[in-house]
Design a protein around this nucleic acid. Sequence first.
RNA 1: GUGGGUAUGGCGAAGCGGUUAACGCACCGGAUUGUGGCUCCGGCACGCAUGGGUUCGAUCCCCAUUACCCACCCCA
Length: 421
Amino acid sequence: MLTKRPRGTNDFLPEDTVKWQYVENMLRELCRQFGYEELRTPIFEETELFLRGVGDTTDIVQKEMYTFEDAGGRSVTLRPENTASAVRAYVENKMFAGAQPTKLFYIGPMFRYERPQAGRFRQFHQFGIECFGASSPAADAEIIVLAWEFYRRLGLRNLELNVNSVGCPECRPVYRKALQDFLRPNLDKLCGTCQERFEKNPLRILDCKNPECQHHLVGAPTTIDALCDDCREHFNAVLRHLDAVGIPYKINEKLVRGLDYYTNTAFEILLSDIGAQSAVCGGGRYNRLVEEIGGKPTPGVGFALGMERVFNALQAQGIELPIKPKIDVFVAALGAEASDVAFRLVTEMRRLGLAAEHDMMGRSLKAQFKYADKFNAAYTLVVGGDELSRGTVQLRDMKGSEQQEIPLDKAAEILAAKFAL
RNA sequence: GUGGGUAUGGCGAAGCGGUUAACGCACCGGAUUGUGGCUCCGGCACGCAUGGGUUCGAUCCCCAUUACCCACCCCA
């Protein structure tokens, strides 16, 4: 099928891309205000980067990666997320040598081989930020504030922020063992995947959706109870910062992120009214990742949010984005000579910054007006034989229907003035 | 990887065994000579995802295939 796009991918048409551009511009301005600068990494990386960075026990690595061998025999993989690449770029480009922290954002396509459904695609788009070098809880809080502020500016409602702490290399092994000890007597009653997780990644059992597994978790020790003093203080400080700026949260001690690199803070922002894929944003702290990938021990925090899910949510909540009209001024022409004038006029107005359009389909004057009206042109100029002989054009205000005759050679600047250009 | 649902013009959607496949939207054109939004008129599927089968006859029944959607798993 030549005329069929690959499964799980989307064509974004002009009616969509105007919205994407609006949201992207909002994100860029938000990042400027928060001090995050754009990083662009390759769409594909050496496969090994994701094996190490994302974690080889994760579903992403085990079954969702687009991996192939290139003509040089290297195994490369389409990026399933951007954090591993950001860390790689941070180390490779020695960004640690500058003033810290290094605050970066990215936006672009990611690839995961999954069965598509509402809010989930094989090529999807993420916006995310990473902050390297700062171990302060203020960094954890800052990224959460940025995410929250983004959704607030869009006007989205019913957002729920869940936070948790999964501890550090000191206290996590202790907790891990405590959880295993708690579950061991009922190990054979857990679901198959949880039995596998028991040794490799027991924390993942906490957020298993299986009711039977959840039943056997009742009374289980929580990650928060097991935190060491430093981690507890860090977690409390993050919460204090959130309190200080009025961001509501829910402590969810079963929140464990699906990527292996997280330490301490983990958080998720959920939005219930967009179907089953309700996580619109997820992130946390990853103090061991830079080291894992071969850099010097460097703390980091970050999050990613799904762009498609943002638009899902906007639609579900009936939020209209303020998109500029497609046409400011339409120039209607009668006859060949007038068409030539219209072309010059349109060009002149475009050079002054207006969105100007004229007919290239040989439409009747009436049809030209219909066209201008359809795209909400604020004004229409009419160029006809009579006007040409007088060196004028008709200026029609499409809202009030008032019309006046103005000099042709002043038309462009008169229109530009109306738009305060 | 597993389960469920749906496939009719650019979009939405009737028809559910029988002469010319409703209707709405969109698009294009027109309603006296050069002017939009409202109204009216006209145009726009030789075909009902594809391939088989049942039948005198199928868009309507059966089977298969494919695609899309939704859900599980997991995640953004």
